Simulated assay, not measured.
Amino acid sequence: MADSLPEWAIKGELILNCNCTVFCPCVISLGDHPPTEGYCMGWAGIRIDQGHYDGEDLSGLNVGLLLEIPGKMARGNWKAAAYIDERASDKAYNGLVKIFTGQARGTTGLFRILVSEFLGATRAPIEYQTEGKTRRLMVGKAIKGEVAPVPGHGGKDIVVTNTQYWMGPDVTVAKASQGRVRAFGRVWDFDGRSAEICQIDWHGPK
């Protein structure tokens, strides 16, 4: 099967903010521990530094995600939506939709299994900014977020390393100073809640 699927890869950075009151337990439990509030609502932003899908360059594009999970992450029944950078070519747009719905398999293939309702994909102006250690994401009028690492000893970042988390092995513990979603009938405000920063190196099936 892998040979018949287009080859793809993405390297860059991902930020995520959810409604957990303390650092998301999914990172260490690999989705086997319930979110701190019993359910998960969150948004994510992906900055693609280098990437391609079936020969089409994805470098420099951004993606926004909306995620809703009713309990333990590993049990599935997720709802999800994707926002694709309005600068993407038609081929890049279609490729990113396939990647973020799991159709392209590989690292994000788990979305095919865990997402029971895909709310939709749409083009949007997406800004992913870095100022010092602070990351900001703006997805049209749908998502407005700002996250920064939680300072550890000596002011250094707190990093959970060598995990088997699907996003990447090293996850920086962060907190959102702003986490606003106004999309698909959802009105969320997660200021002060859990956030993550992760360097990603994703690819299709090998």
Rank of each mutant, 00 (worst) to 15 (best):
I200G: 01
P169R: 08
S4T: 14
M1A: 13
L110P: 09
G42T: 02
S89V: 01
D157G: 10
C198R: 01
I48G: 03
G152F: 11
A183H: 12
G38S: 12
D189A: 11
A81D: 00
V150S: 03
G204E: 10
P125T: 05
S59I: 02
E86S: 14
D85F: 00
E86A: 14
G179D: 07
T108Y: 05
D191C: 06
D49T: 12
G51N: 06
M73R: 07
I48E: 00
N19M: 09
C40T: 01
A2S: 15
V22A: 14
P125L: 01
E56K: 01
I200N: 10
G145P: 11
W78G: 05
G31K: 10
G102T: 04
A80H: 07
I99G: 01
E127T: 13
A9V: 00
K98V: 08
G179P: 05
T108D: 05
Q103Y: 11
W43H: 10
D189R: 02
K72G: 10
E196I: 11
G71D: 12
N19P: 11
A148F: 11
Q50E: 15
D191P: 00
A121R: 09
A176G: 11
T163E: 08
A142V: 03
F111H: 09
L96S: 00
V150R: 07
D54M: 01
E68Y: 06
T122F: 05
I84P: 03
V181E: 04
P70H: 08
L114Q: 05
C40S: 00
I84R: 10
G102F: 02
R123D: 06
T130F: 05
K175N: 07
A9K: 12
A74Q: 13
I197E: 11
G132T: 11
I10Q: 02
C40V: 02
A104D: 07
V63W: 02
P205K: 02
T161Q: 15
W43P: 09
T122L: 03
P151E: 12
A142S: 07
P125Y: 10
T172E: 14
I15E: 08
Q164P: 00
W188M: 13
N94T: 11
T161F: 09
